[in-house]
Design a protein around this nucleic acid. Structure first.
Lengths: 138, 138
DNA sequence: CTAACTGCAAACCCTTTGCAGTCCG
DNA sequence: CGGACTGCAAAGGGTTTGCAGTTAG
């Protein structure tokens, strides 16, 4: 499947009511063609490689839009920056605190047992699991 | 046990090689007398209630020091701010994304099954579980 | 023609830092 | 005395916003 073609991506955006622009198409190409973990700044750099007429504001605006449309998920693993994940299916993460590298852990591999019953007035939104690892100390 | 007396806290700081000052003692009283979740700014406000001659820089310096000494743990649940947790024992969290309220979930209640085997060059630092909830939509 | 999108730059918030003054051992 | 701690204010980095110009339907 040609998931990375402009045609496919443009249709996908239109299908969810997102007007297609050059910048959004390119942001979609970088973020949505395959599972990636990118910060806003990293995304901006990649998008500017091919579409230099892209501003920081547009990247942030588009990320917010994509998040609202459930095309990407925010990962909060580091106080320094937010990371955007193009895998919106339930899954977990392994995070190397030294390198910043993020790896997906499939929901089939890992299970959270014993989630407490919730107060009546709240509902579950999502369960985050972050397995923090670091390079071995010698 | 008088865990909140100045005497006890001062001794506790000295025991781990932290020179005792008025500000540190007060920060310790607010943070360490009982399990709390506080942001730096919230902590500053509480400390200034009793010791107004406390600067923001001192709060941040002291939080870093306390973290290095394993008196508090950083919680990364919200991109807006870091929350400090005076419960340094392994445990998990329930987070209300609407109110910002954080609740501890004891390690005995909840288990993470299936943590993947780690690459040889890294070691496990910690497993974070954040159960995100929100007020029920009507 | 109107509404929506974009770019730029400045504003904003949280956190850290430089520096001078102060205190404790 | 010397090293460490403190306060102030300014710097720093990531994110958001105001506004004017442009584009698409």
């Amino acid at each position: 499947m040609e998931t990375s073609s402009s045609r496919y991506l443009a249709d996908r955006l239109r299908a969810i009511g997102v007007p297609v622009t050059l910048q959004r198409l390119e942001i979609a190409r970088v973020m949505l063609s395959r599972p990636v973990h990118l910060s806003a700044e990293q995304l901006l750099a990649k998008v500017r490689d091919t579409v230099p007429e892209t501003s920081r504001a547009t990247v942030y605006n588009t990320l917010r839009l994509f998040r609202e449309k459930n095309l990407v998920k925010e990962l909060i693993v580091d106080p320094e920056r937010v990371v955007y994940d193009s895998n919106v299916e339930p899954h977990y993460h392994l995070y190397d605190v030294d390198t910043g590298e993020l790896t997906d852990v499939a929901a089939e591999e890992l299970h959270v047992v014993g989630v407490p019953s919730l107060p009546a007035h709240v509902e579950l939104e999502q369960v985050d699991v972050i397995i923090r690892v670091r390079g071995k100390r010698v």
